[in-house]
């Protein structure tokens, strides 16, 4: 086995392990940290698949922005009392059954699909990930979705502001 392959499997294992840690950790902040870890590992995957720009976006937006936001919100609401940060599961067994069913079905279909098999045998593995190609496609072929998405982001900003704003007189729902 080449060193590259070993590193790749270690990466895969790290990804899965950190994902497990996200969902079973009793401590919410620890969950968030593991989520950041798994997102960073995904970024490494992106780099190895030739998607440098995506990796950058992943690190900046996800690991940087989203995780910070989540940690902020946790600290904002939990008032740093350790007993309130305790996190439990409810209905774990049906959840486990359902999610493993999804997992096995996905694996089954990709394993038996001839198309995926042929792809796995001979991936085209072209390294086209330079940002120039991506942005040229983005701003020509995909420009309409892009513009629509910018509208969505605007709506999300306004919506988040409106929702999170603290009104002077709060009505009890």
């Amino acid at each position: 086995m080449k060193a590259e392959t070993i590193a790749f499997f270690i990466l895969c294992l790290g990804l899965v392990a950190s994902s497990i840690a996200v969902v079973i950790s009793k401590h919410l902040l620890r969950s968030a940290i593991f989520l950041a870890l798994s997102l960073l590992l995904t970024a490494i995957f992106y780099i190895s698949f030739g998607a440098e720009l995506l990796a950058g976006v992943q690190i900046l937006l996800y690991a940087g922005g989203v995780i910070t936001l989540i940690v902020f919100v946790i600290l904002l609401t939990e008032r740093i009392e350790m007993k309130k940060l305790e996190e439990t599961h409810r209905g774990a067994i049906p959840a486990l059954l359902a999610s493993s069913l999804v997992f096995f079905i996905l694996v089954y279909f990709t394993w038996t699909s001839p198309k995926v098999q042929s792809l796995a045998k001979s991936p085209s593995s072209s390294t086209f990930g330079i940002s120039k190609t991506l942005s040229e496609n983005l701003f020509q072929e995909w420009v309409l979705p892009f513009e629509v998405l910018s509208l969505l982001l605007l709506a999300a900003i306004i919506g988040a502001l409106v929702l999170a704003r603290r009104e002077r007189k709060e009505k009890e729902i």
Partner: peptide, 14 residues
């Protein structure tokens, strides 16, 4: 949807 040879060019061509 996408024709690779139209849209994806190797870096060297650029």
């Amino acid at each position: 949807i996408v024709k690779p040879k139209d849209h994806i060019q190797a870096p060297s061509q650029y």
